[in-house]
């Protein structure tokens, strides 16, 4: 959806480069297992897709002659370090196994939970949020939110399905969207363009 917006409108207005780069970092840290484990064709294709789209978005926003001029750097002020440092520390302390790939995987789970924050802050500052941006954020939130249903199903049907780190992070991630979803639903019901209160 985001690539569609950027390519079709030649603009990344209202999109946080910080969030996009954090997602690229999330996917790099999480999908290192592409090199040493195979789960299914679907799983591999999606991992490669996420990596490719994340890097493509960052490339457009940073380097495309037209698109990069529409990036509002002054408004996208969230500091990377405030998200990366706590997540890295937490991953070093709270993990299932103290190995490089497992700690990086855990770091990616924590970082993904909060990676939307720069985007949410930017949107709060944006007067006219376009529909594609609002829909993109809604879909991103719904994506992990729907996982919760899947986790409940797997918990009930699979014997050794215990993933506390993933579950707590996923619920926290979904909760961060609660406020956004509330206003998204209000505006959708009223058939209005999304506006977030300051």
């Amino acid at each position: 959806v985001l690539l569609l917006k950027i390519r079709a409108t030649r603009s990344c207005r209202g999109i946080s480069l910080k969030t996009q780069e954090l997602y690229a970092l999330v996917f790099i840290c999480r999908y290192l297992d592409l090199f040493y484990s195979y789960i299914s064709l679907y799983n591999t294709v999606m991992k490669v897709t996420y990596l490719a789209t994340a890097f493509s978005i960052v490339r457009y926003m940073r380097f495309d002659k037209v698109v990069r001029q529409t990036y509002d750097k002054e408004q996208d002020t969230f500091r990377y370090i405030f998200l990366i440092a706590p997540c890295a520390l937490l991953a070093l302390v709270l993990n299932h196994r103290f190995s490089p790939t497992e700690v990086l995987w855990t770091f990616s789970i924590y970082l993904e939970a909060v990676a939307i924050l720069p985007q949410l802050v930017l949107m709060q500052r944006t007067q006219n949020i376009d529909n594609l941006t609002a829909n993109y954020v809604a879909l991103l939130g719904a994506y992990r939110g729907f996982y919760i249903l899947n986790w409940i199903y797997r918990f009930a049907t699979e014997k050794h399905y215990r993933q506390w780190i993933v579950w707590i992070s996923g619920v926290a991630q979904t909760a961060l969207y609660a406020d956004f979803f509330y206003y998204y639903a209000l505006c959708w019901k009223a058939n209005q363009r999304l506006q977030l209160p300051a």
Binding site: R30, D33, E102, H160, R162
Partner: peptide
């Protein structure tokens, strides 16, 4: 119980 499984989710 098997604590460490393959990370089969995305």
């Amino acid at each position: 119980a098997q604590l460490l499984q393959d990370h089969d989710e995305l």
